[in-house]
């Protein structure tokens, strides 16, 4: 283990390697690392921003959903109300129609009754006239007794 030129040679070798490392190895690697660090930081920030936005969107979605639900229930309530109204209306209409029908029928019946009565009266008159005619025979003038018979018929 004697000292010799190797010692100086090693110093030079060391210096050369250090210089080379200093010049060509260290800077590009550190630059790449630095740039990547920045890029990752940016990416993380963007991700965080995205997450925040997603949160907001979620909240908005919930709000919209709630609104929609409210609207839907409103619509349903309105529809139910409307349906009830329609049913009531229909009921009323039906009732009115029924009443109208009943009234019409009653009127018709009344009319029929009246007509029947008139007819009956007419027939009774003619019957009475015929009867009276037969009773009075030729003596009684049909025209002179007509007033009398009409009076009688009106009293029926």
């Amino acid at each position: 283990m004697n000292f010799n030129y190797t010692f100086i040679g090693q110093m030079i070798t060391f210096a050369v390697f250090v210089y080379f490392c200093f010049k060509f190895v260290w800077p590009p690697i550190m630059n790449a690392l630095h740039e990547r660090r920045n890029k990752i930081a940016d990416g993380l920030a963007a991700a965080e921003k995205g997450q925040h936005e997603e949160e907001l969107a979620k909240q908005r979605a919930i709000e919209i959903l709630k609104e929609a639900k409210d609207q839907a229930s409103d619509i349903i309530r309105n529809a139910e109300k409307r349906a009830g109204e329609i049913v009531d209306e229909a009921k009323n209409d039906a009732k009115a129609e029924g009443e109208r029908l009943v009234t019409a029928a009653q009127a018709e019946i009344e009319q029929n009754i009246t007509r029947a009565r008139e007819e009956l009266r007419g027939q009774v008159v003619s019957l009475a006239v015929a009867g009276a005619g037969k009773v009075l025979k030729k003596e009684i003038d049909e025209k002179a007794n007509e007033d009398l018979i009409k009076d009688l018929a009106a009293q029926l």
Partner: peptide, 12 residues
């Protein structure tokens, strides 16, 4: 294991 090498570095 050669002191020339280690001294070369340390002296540098």
């Amino acid at each position: 294991t050669d002191p020339n090498a280690t001294f070369g570095m340390s002296i540098a």
